[in-house]
């Protein structure tokens, strides 16, 4: 188990770096819009000084745009903060919907990300005892795979259902075909194995099913070694 965990360290660091790079890219985009809007306001001010009429609607549009981007920035920073703190504790009780929501947000910064919708978002599930960081890594990779299959205009629906005493069945239903021969790749398989996640066979090229256990022996070992 420890060897397997050590093998995961390099991959985990890569994942952490990749997510942080995509967050910084998102923040740069936000700042670029605010910077151009501020520049445009300066342009309008200069024109007004020269006696040109200043349209109030333009000022209103600019201030609304800046406010929207600041809100986008706050949301991004909140996601960054949640993600950063996911390494604080190796094993803990988590709400799968919370983790899915965060991973959908973070993968949304990727240029090839499509639309994702969680069906029946108001459902309540038992918490899962797991390694939140590794579970995030797994879900992030699977979402990336699903986006690539769906294409930029595609849509992925996520359906969750409890399996008594076992865990939560998570289904990725994709508008694009998902080639079974490419899934799961070695990295996904390795992470899933550590988390006790089991991929369920189904007959559809448009669907991936996985059972996320409420807990598993390997995770209990990690918890003991904390």
């Amino acid at each position: 188990m420890n060897d397997a965990l050590n093998d995961m360290n390099a991959e985990s660091l890569k994942f952490f770096g990749k997510v942080n790079a995509s967050i910084s890219h998102e923040l740069k985009n936000i700042l670029a819009i605010i910077s151009e809007t501020a520049g445009f306001l300066n342009d309008l001010t200069e024109l007004a000084k020269q006696g040109k009429e200043l349209k109030l609607s333009l000022l209103e549009n600019c201030s609304n745009s800046i406010a929207e981007e600041i809100q986008r920035g706050f949301t991004t920073i909140k996601q960054m903060n949640r993600f950063s703190h996911s390494v604080d504790v190796a094993v803990m009780d988590v709400d799968l919907l919370d983790i899915l929501d965060l991973m959908i947000g973070l993968t949304g910064f990727l240029s090839f990300a499509g639309k994702v919708r969680i069906e029946d978002k108001d459902q309540k599930f038992e918490t899962i005892t797991t390694c939140p960081f590794l579970l995030q890594n797994l879900l992030y990779r699977i979402l990336c795979f699903a986006y690539e299959c769906a294409g930029p205009e595609g849509e992925i629906r996520l359906r969750l259902s409890p399996e008594k005493d076992k865990g939560i069945l998570l289904r990725f239903i994709n508008s694009g075909q998902m080639p079974v021969e490419k899934f799961p790749d070695e990295k996904i398989k390795q992470t899933a194995d550590l988390l006790g996640v089991e991929f369920k066979k189904n007959n559809s090229f448009y669907e991936l099913n996985m059972l996320i256990p409420y807990t598993c022996d390997k995770i209990k070992d990690v918890e003991k070694n904390q």
Partner: peptide, 16 residues
């Protein structure tokens, strides 16, 4: 650019 607000604003400033 897929950041629509960014290039719209840039286009306005270039037009000025």
């Amino acid at each position: 650019d897929d950041e629509q607000k960014f290039i719209n604003m840039l286009a306005k400033r270039l037009a000025l």
